[in-house]
């Protein structure tokens, strides 16, 4: 018994049609969840009454449950919900929209935490300096704080994106014709599942590495102003954990404590 390479070539050719579908899901989810993530992070940081609790609850719920459960809930609840609103048409909706919904909802939670810690790493002296040259708090936020937070969040946005790309491989459960779905169908004819999934694996490796390279280029491009000690060049091999930046926060605090002491 050995791998059927002819079949693998064939799968590679058909499954490539699923690549744009996967990329589309990832891009849509990312583009919608980035601004909402910033907004939610601000709600948490500024402890906006009422909303803060909702965001906290939402993030905890999404981060505490498997993506598969979220997929199953959205996929079973939304059609009947839509059915009530727009009638029978709900059932003929392209399932990719359900994928958009699930993965956007999921990414919002991840990115909220990413931006929360990134915003906290920006020294509060940056805001004060802005106020002291006459800016309004809002102006200082947009022009000084947010750009710095976004850049220090880049490695974790990269992590979140990787996480999103990998999770999107479950879109086939919602009958989305993505890479996995196509390969699975092909494999079912002759029971060549191993070959099919090896091909899918390679596609995901390529997509993930591609994303990682893009983020590394972004990081390198934007890191020109950052302190050499803090610079995160090269590949970020850290585990895909968004608690990672906490350490950064702590070292930053330690640093500012040191300067505070020095100044007394």
């Amino acid at each position: 018994m050995s791998l059927n390479t002819d079949f693998m070539v064939k799968v590679a050719q058909t499954a490539i049609q699923g690549v744009p579908v996967t990329l589309q899901i990832v891009l849509v989810a990312l583009l919608i969840s980035l601004p909402i993530g910033v907004l939610f992070a601000l709600i948490r940081i500024y402890r906006i009454k009422g909303l803060e609790l909702i965001v906290k609850f939402y993030v905890s719920l999404v981060r505490g449950t498997p993506i598969i459960a979220q997929i199953l809930i959205v996929y079973s609840a939304f059609p009947s919900l839509l059915n009530m609103m727009i009638g029978k048409a709900a059932f003929s909706i392209n399932p990719i929209y359900y994928a958009y919904i699930v993965f956007t909802l999921n990414s919002i939670a991840t990115l909220t935490e990413v931006f929360r810690s990134a915003l906290q790493t920006v020294d509060k002296g940056q805001m004060e300096a802005g106020l002291m040259v006459g800016m309004q708090p809002r102006q200082a936020f947009w022009r000084i704080i947010l750009p710095q937070a976004l850049i220090s969040a880049l490695p974790n946005i990269a992590n979140a994106t990787l996480y999103l790309i990998k999770n999107s491989s479950l879109a086939f459960i919602m009958s989305v014709k993505d890479i996995t779905a196509i390969a699975k169908t092909e494999a079912a004819f002759n029971y060549n599942f191993l070959e099919a999934y090896l091909v899918v694996w390679v596609y995901y490796l390529i997509i993930c590495y591609g994303a990682e390279i893009i983020f590394n280029l972004l990081e390198r491009y934007f890191s020109k102003y950052r302190r050499s000690a803090k610079r995160t060049t090269g590949f970020n091999w850290n585990p895909f954990s968004i608690k990672q930046p906490k350490l950064v926060v702590k070292t930053d605090l330690a640093e500012s404590e040191r300067t505070n002491n020095a100044h007394n």
Binding site: L162, I165, K166, N167, S169, L170, T180, F193, L194, Y197, L198, V200, W201, Y204, L205, C208, Y209, E212, W237, P239, F240
Partner: peptide, 15 residues
């Protein structure tokens, strides 16, 4: 880090 869990499970299961 770049491998979806579902693919890892499938590859192990069939491989």
């Amino acid at each position: 880090r770049a491998t979806p869990s579902i693919i890892m499970i499938f590859v192990v299961y069939y491989g």
